[in-house]
Amino acid sequence: MKIDSIQNGIVLDHIKAGRSMEIYKLLGLDRLDCSVAIIKNARSTQMGKKDIIKIADRIDLNLDVLGFVDPGITVDIIEDGKLVQKKHVQLPEKLVNVLKCKNPRCITSSEPHLRSMFVLTDREKRVYSCAYCDTRYHR
């Protein structure tokens, strides 16, 4: 399968196979006007198979979201068809307005305008806790 390379934009590479649609939704890529290509199950020498997202525009990316979904992702910045910067993401300490607390007793469930906030409470197990009510969310 052939996907045209982009001239100016961003390539999200080394996405664990099957996670690309989650990233697509969390980053709100459906709202973009530019071309966005999602490549699922691309062959990878390192990973066996992987997903890739290509965005034909230099948009502001929420790196925390990427780190939360998959800290192994790399972000390639492309200018004039050339790779000018490669960023590595990591598991973020805090997630703002990314997750919604599922605890019906949490104040964020009755006051939905509040900023949702989760903090990393167990890096090893990748557990985040709601900053309001401490409800845990396993990644």
């Binding site: 007793r105 104040i107 469930s109 900053a131 009510c133 401490d134």
Partner: peptide, 27 residues
């Protein structure tokens, strides 16, 4: 005191005076 968990955390985001949690739900 508030029946919803985390209500005092919501309060301190905007409070300019000290806030004491006197009980927030089962939290």
């Amino acid at each position: 005191r508030h029946p919803k968990e985390g209500a005092p955390f919501a309060a301190v985001q905007v409070a300019s005076k000290p806030v004491i949690n006197a009980g927030d739900g089962g939290h």
